[in-house]
Design a protein around this nucleic acid. Structure first.
Lengths: 348, 348
DNA sequence: GTACGTAATAACAGCGTTGTCATTCGGCTT
DNA sequence: AAGCCGAATGACAACGCTGTTATTACGTAC
């Protein structure tokens, strides 16, 4: 690899000192236009790429973000990852991904090791890890910057950067949509206990029922996990009710896909005999028949914005050390996507 | 972050020179047992983690692998990623992931920039990139070590590290399984042109037909892409044949899932009226009804072994510079998984 | 007990950047 | 034209580690 060009070569070719080159690459300012052009030209000519290692070492900071997650679902993870990556590339950061398991007792140690080893500038944490107080406390203790993505409809704690995803209102909207279709016997299949989203979504469901004067029916509410299998089991159980529900709102698309299968195996038509809605707008929801009504979560955008905010936050930290600074808070609200699984009308 | 402990602190505490500590952390040998213990004790006590940046800079090498892929499918990518990561963690390497698009003309430049920026020790490349000569040539020119994962049943080129996945024989086996079930009118839905696997699998299919004296029927062979949508379209087209096939072998599970839907929409029962097989053993294949017969690709293991071989190869390169060295070649063969979509008998 | 060879250890100079601080430049005031 | 000041630039010392080369310790043979 002829990737030899160092800052020295550039400086020499441009006829300036290495420090000036450094100023240019870091956009520090205080460089005259003429000089800047000379330097940039030299950089292009030599195809110069600053050495990350040297940069990190000398600056005793790093240009790498970490993405910490507990593999909730392949599409979500990949969407997040890609979104973060896009932002990182633009900003000249690197991404270190770190899947880990909530079940793992030593997760705190694991995170600590990771942060130290990789010299990360900051972390992006997605649920359910981002909703575990002990994890957040540990990170605070490590004194590492992070932005967490959580399910909540309002700012709950403004001391650290956060992305709020308003699952509750979106679930409310889905439930209202079902009610509009004439349903009153609406069941709910809830996802994992440890994901706040599953509770938020259920809350939205209950609020919608209440608003429309519908008595919630305990036997229509089953708790489980975010999985196809639970969808199948949960729907089967629902169908055991003497008075069967006419609609099932599933906490995510995977559950919905499972429910869909169980329902159709039972010989019921969807949506005429049973409406089914999911949540997330994952590819799943488009690969079932009929396609699933769901709530579209802009995961990729969430990821990008989260990364972007974190990077900005880090920059401001470097400048105003110690001082108070703006702590980013972002809000997202999944949007209802009406498809065939809940209504007869639409085009396919 | 009190992550202050440097090699100096450790050296001081252990009463040795920093070089000795370096020897210990790098397992260079030539350290007396007593000294080694002292040093290790100090490392533990200070919770010392070598600084990656300094390490890379001083050694002018790096401990990071890159995983380059063109997002073929979420489950595959994630399996690969996790496998590589597991190995990396054990060996103290980092992983930089790099999704990119085959369609992108400047992909070569992109790779070059990435390699330079991230100071990568080596690359792991999966299909279809690993099967594009121009990409491999570019990497050779960059003089970066890499291991490629390709679809092939025998060693084709022994000059660079390679993982061979024998799709052909696995496809042969699946086809034979269908023939054993009494099928002779077997259709084939092929995946993307640019993936060698799609051709290899088709070859296996054709070879099985030939072995059993079945005349291949051109109108039973449709080319498309690795997607659910193509599965739907392809199956529809197949059903237009006057003499319909009785079995569809789909190039992967996604296609199979699509085909399954189209077939059932057409009112045909699976497997009694139409058998359907997939390939890959992705979660898809277990979340359809009936479950899909498929070929299990040990993606996670492939990834681990690939990473492991690459790391070993890099190490041997460092030692025997210039000299001839063992170039790793690994072979994998997906295994037939019989499920309900091709046979009536089995338990659900 | 001396000499010798090898294994174990240390000293020290980089690696390619950035941070700090000193210096020079260019324009503006007087 | 001298004096001044902020902006632009440069010199040089870190950053924490590894590679290289020099030095010391230890065991063995005579």
């Amino acid at each position: 690899m002829k990737s030899k060009a160092t800052i020295k070569d550039v400086a020499e070719l441009a006829g300036v000192s290495i420090k000036t080159v450094s100023r240019v690459t870091n956009q520090e300012g205080s460089v005259r236009k003429a000089t800047l052009d000379k330097v940039n030209e030299a950089i292009d000519k030599l195809n110069y790429q600053p050495n990350t290692a040297a940069r990190n070492l000398a600056g005793s900071k790093s240009f790498a973000l970490g993405y910490v997650y507990d593999n909730p679902n392949a599409y979500y993870v990949l969407d997040m990852q890609n979104g973060i990556l896009e932002e990182c590339r633009e900003r000249g950061y690197e991404l270190v991904i770190h899947p880990c398991s909530v079940a793992n007792k030593s997760i705190i140690d694991e995170l600590e090791t990771m942060v130290k080893r990789s010299q990360l500038a900051g972390l992006i944490i997605s649920p359910p890890l981002s909703e575990m107080p002990e994890v957040l406390t540990a990170l605070d203790k490590l004194n590492i910057a992070y932005i967490k993505i959580i399910s909540a409809c309002e700012v709950s704690d403004d001391s650290s950067p956060c992305v709020y995803v308003n699952d509750r209102d979106a679930a409310f909207e889905i439930t209202e949509h079902l009610i509009e279709q004439g349903h009153t016997k609406i069941a709910f299949l809830r996802g994992d206990e440890c994901h706040r989203s599953s509770h938020e979504r259920k809350l939205g469901y209950l609020q919608a029922l209440e608003k429309h004067g519908i008595q919630p029916n305990k036997s229509y509410q089953i708790d489980g996990s975010y999985s196809f299998e639970f969808g199948v089991e949960g729907a089967k159980e629902l169908l055991l009710n003497e008075e069967k529900p006419t609609a099932i709102f599933s906490c995510n698309d995977e559950i919905a896909a499972g429910a869909l299968f169980a329902v159709r195996l039972n010989g019921l038509d969807v949506p005429s005999e049973m409406a089914i809605a999911g949540f997330e707008d994952s590819p799943f929801s488009r690969q079932t028949w009929p396609k699933l009504t769901t709530a579209a979560q802009p995961t990729n955008e969430i990821a990008r914005k989260a990364a972007s905010s974190l990077i900005q936050y880090l920059a401001s930290q470097r400048i105003r050390k110690g001082e108070q600074q703006n702590i980013p808070h972002l809000h997202f609200r999944p949007k209802l996507v009406k498809r065939e699984s809940t209504q007869l009308l639409t085009e396919v």
